[in-house]
Simulated assay, not measured.
Amino acid sequence: MALDQAAGDERPFLWVQDKAALRKSGRPYRPGLPPALRHRLIHVAANTPEDALFALEEGLRCRDLSFVVGELAGNPKGLSFTASRRLSLVAEKHGVPLWLIRIDAAHDLSSARMRWDVRSAASPPPRWNADAPGPPAWQAQLFRARAHPPGEWILRDDGQSLVAGAPHHEQADTVDLVHRPGDRSLATG
């Protein structure tokens, strides 16, 4: 879901974190979210990865949510291929997009439609003050997708949106795009 689509959609969204992800990355920072999303956040802090997976699945069953974000640390046993497949099927059935962020995770089996490695990248120099930090930047590598070739980009925040550019070469987080409305199930094709 693009942010311009999210701007016209006033439904809330769900962000679920397990305890380890909360410790590593902190709670979502409302002022750092796009203005159209700030007042719509529902945050769940789960004690275990299994509790987080349960909350994600229940959130996906709720069509009153515009989308669901899950954040898990590492490669928890509970997030098996079967568990990821179950999330994919529930997301597809109910038409709720799911993004699963796996912090400090190794690549393993997943039923996600798109799999990305995302890590921080060097910021470009600031425009006015050479001693200030530059705008945030990320290196994004698409390493698995059914309908897209693999690729690598540098994403920069220009204050309005993310701008993609050519990559240069830093610890990666894995982002799984599990389902978007209109996607077909991996099991069917």
Rank of each mutant, 00 (worst) to 15 (best):
E92A: 14
W153I: 15
E50L: 12
F143L: 02
T174W: 07
R119L: 08
D4I: 05
A121L: 08
P135S: 07
G74N: 01
R27W: 08
T82H: 06
E57Y: 03
R102W: 03
G159W: 10
A132D: 07
S25L: 06
S25Q: 10
A55N: 12
S66Q: 14
I101Y: 02
E57H: 09
E57S: 09
S25P: 01
L53Q: 06
W128D: 11
L37I: 04
L142R: 06
D64W: 03
R61A: 13
S66G: 12
Q160E: 13
L87E: 11
L33E: 14
P126H: 11
L60V: 04
G95W: 04
M114T: 08
R30V: 15
D158N: 15
A166E: 02
T188E: 12
K19H: 10
D157H: 13
R85F: 09
D104L: 05
T174F: 06
F81L: 15
A112T: 05
E10L: 15
E50P: 01
P136W: 06
A187E: 15
A7P: 00
A73V: 01
F54L: 08
R144S: 13
D108M: 00
D157A: 09
I103V: 08
S123A: 15
A140R: 08
A187M: 15
A20P: 12
V44D: 07
R144F: 06
A187L: 15
V69C: 07
G32N: 05
M114Y: 07
L41E: 14
L100E: 04
H107K: 12
W116S: 01
P150F: 09
P181E: 01
E92S: 11
D117Q: 10
Q139R: 14
V175R: 00
R63K: 15
A55V: 08
V118G: 01
D158Q: 14
D9N: 14
N75V: 13
S80M: 05
D173N: 12
G26F: 08
P150Y: 01
D9G: 08
L60R: 01
A140Y: 02
R61D: 09
S123D: 12
H43G: 02
R115T: 01
S110Q: 04
L65S: 11
S84V: 09
D176K: 01
T174S: 00
L37H: 05
S66W: 02
K93M: 04
F81W: 09
L56M: 06
P35A: 15
K77G: 04
E170C: 11
V178H: 10
P181D: 03
R156W: 05
Q141S: 09
C62G: 01
E71F: 02
W138G: 00
L3A: 03
Q141R: 14
A164C: 07
V69F: 13
A106V: 01
A106E: 08
L155H: 10
F67S: 13
L53P: 04
A172I: 10
S110L: 06
P125H: 11
R86Y: 08
P149N: 10
A145V: 03
D131T: 14
E10M: 09
D173T: 10
D64Q: 14
S120L: 12
Q5S: 14
A140S: 11
I42R: 02
P135V: 10
S84A: 08
H39N: 06
R146F: 08
A46S: 14
W15L: 13
E170K: 01
R85V: 02
D51Y: 07
V69K: 09
S80N: 06
R119I: 00
A36Q: 11
A145F: 03
P34Q: 09
I103S: 02
R61H: 06
V16M: 00
D158W: 09
